[in-house]
Amino acid sequence: MTAYKGRVVSGGRLQIPADVRKELGLADGDDVRLEVVDGELRVRSLKSALTRIRAMVREHVPPGVSLAKELIADRRAEAARD
């Protein structure tokens, strides 16, 4: 694990070193997910956060099941009842 030095500048902005931005795949204007865990700040690209969430959901969905198709079928069934 490599430690880097950043700096908090005016307005509470955090300067992230270029090497860290590159490693995280961040570019100017990218959205990030910030999380405070046990007094530490974790910064994750939004893409990385979504990838992690999708993997967590996949653990609970059987292979071959499409949640989108199930949702559409549920909505159609609901609409037919009304």
Rank of each mutant, 00 (worst) to 15 (best):
G64F: 03
R58K: 13
A77K: 09
R52I: 09
G64Q: 05
G29N: 10
R54W: 03
D31V: 04
A73Y: 02
R81H: 03
I72H: 02
A77V: 01
I16M: 11
G29W: 04
A49K: 07
A18R: 14
I53M: 12
A55D: 09
V65P: 01
R21V: 03
S66P: 02
R76I: 09
K47I: 05
L71K: 06
R58Y: 04
V9F: 09
A55K: 14
A55E: 13
A73L: 07
V37R: 15
S66W: 08
L26A: 04
V61F: 07
D31A: 15
L24V: 04
A80Q: 08
L67D: 03
V37K: 14
G29S: 11
P63M: 01
G64K: 06
L50D: 08
H60Y: 13
L46A: 14
R52L: 13
E23D: 14
L41T: 08
D28G: 06
R33A: 11
A80F: 01
R33N: 06
R44Q: 14
D82F: 11
L71F: 13
V9W: 06
E40D: 13
I53T: 12
K47C: 00
I72N: 02
A49H: 14
V57D: 02
A80W: 00
L50W: 06
R58I: 00
A27F: 05
R33K: 13
R58E: 14
A80R: 11
K47A: 14
S66M: 07
P62E: 12
D30H: 11
G39S: 10
D28V: 12
I72K: 09
V36R: 12
R52T: 14
A49P: 01
A55I: 01
R81P: 00
M56R: 15
V37N: 08
V32Q: 07
P17V: 09
A79D: 05
K47M: 01
G11T: 05
S48N: 11
P17E: 08
R58C: 02
V8N: 05
K69T: 09
D38R: 14
D38P: 00
I72C: 00
V61C: 04
R75M: 13
D38I: 01
D74T: 05
R44D: 05
G12A: 08
R33H: 11
L50I: 10
Q15H: 07
K69C: 00
S66Q: 07
V32M: 07
D19Y: 05
I16P: 01
S48T: 13
E35S: 15
V8L: 15
A80K: 11
A79F: 10
R33P: 00
A18M: 07
R52Q: 13
G39A: 06
G29T: 08
S48D: 14
H60C: 03
L14E: 09
D28P: 08
L34R: 10
G39N: 12
A77R: 13
V57G: 04
P62G: 01
G12M: 08
E70Y: 03
M56A: 14
D31Y: 07
A49T: 05
V37S: 10
